Computed example of a mutant assay.
Amino acid sequence: MPNELEKRTAQIQAIFNEPVTVSPMSYEQFLQQAKENNWSGSSQLSTTIDPTITASNLFGDLTKSLTALTHQDQVTIDSLPVELRERYISEQGEWLVVISPKEDMTNVKALETFIKESKQIAPNATGRAVAEQEVGGIITGAFQAAIMMSVFAIALILIWTVDKKRDVILIFIPLGLASLTTLGLMHWLNLSMNMANIIVIPLIFGLGVDNGIHIVKRFRSVRALDAFFNTSTPKASLVSCLTTLATFGALIVAEHQGMHSIGLVLTIALSSILVFSLVLLPLLLEVTKKKPIE
């Protein structure tokens, strides 16, 4: 972009606003000016001009030439170049029709509405909008399957790891609440779920289950809420979450929008995991523990 744009614009505008008047000159004056300035071909100019030559004689052929240049035959499909015609007309005579959306296609609802209305007219319509919707559906389905498989695999490991089977449910409660909190804050902050940050949901279960296992193991060994918080486990879980949070949170400063969204959403998710694991899970363990028989 040019420097001092407003100043330059004003200068250009002033040039156009200046009145320009050209005084007519005689042929003798033109001949003298041409020779003084050494114009190309000035030595071949005649010293006099035939007075019988008029403007119509001088510019008659020019008018005919301009008329010929501006006159065009009617443009038809057959008159177009073959390379251009083949882009829009198939060998079967089918025409390519391009529809441009009026709404912003980054809005998912607007995209779905545009595709739905287009396919009502042309069921086989295709293009970038349709491709992005189909790819989005494939990726969403893949991550739904990934979430189900990760939850199932984690549940199997927990069943094998913890002593009390109800602890499996207690460990999953903070993880489920962290997922809901992350999605809720994303909606509140107007952050869209995209192809990059959708990976956060499976990561919530993978990154958060470690805290749950350590907290449950320590609580079952001390069997009291106050004794649990006097151990090193809460501090260790806090430091572990903070180091992981610092690692993924650094992605927020990335210029790449996908990396930025991953860092931002993971920061929200890990913060939720930290709160629910260190506050809610010990309380659930305290409330659900069996009372000693007196």
Rank of each mutant, 00 (worst) to 15 (best):
Gln32Met: 04
Leu5Phe: 10
Gln92Ser: 15
Ile169Arg: 05
Glu86Ala: 15
Leu170Ile: 04
Ser240Asn: 11
Asn17Glu: 15
Thr67Gly: 09
Ile252Tyr: 05
Thr243Lys: 03
Ser271Thr: 14
Ala224Met: 08
Leu281Gln: 00
Ser26Thr: 15
Ile139Ser: 00
Ser40Gln: 14
Val20Ser: 12
Lys64Phe: 03
Val22Met: 12
Val209Trp: 05
Gln144Trp: 10
Leu156Asp: 11
Leu251Lys: 05
Ala14Gly: 09
Glu286Met: 03
Ile99Gly: 07
Gln144Thr: 12
Asp50Gln: 07
Gln13Ser: 01
Phe59Thr: 15
Ala178Met: 12
Phe228Asn: 02
Tyr27Leu: 12
Gly184Cys: 05
Ser237Phe: 00
Lys290Ile: 08
Ser26Met: 13
Arg87Asn: 06
Ala10Trp: 00
Ser40Cys: 01
Ala246Lys: 12
Glu117Gln: 14
Asn57Thr: 10
Thr76Val: 04
Leu283Glu: 01
Ser271Pro: 02
Thr113Phe: 09
Gly60Asp: 05
Gln44His: 13
Arg218Cys: 13
Leu58Gln: 10
Ile138Ala: 13
Ile215Trp: 02
Lys102Glu: 14
Thr288Lys: 08
Ser240Ile: 09
Met25Trp: 07
Asp50Met: 08
Gln92Val: 04
Val216Cys: 01
Glu18Asp: 07
Lys119Thr: 04
Thr47Met: 07
Asn197Gly: 07
Ile15Ser: 06
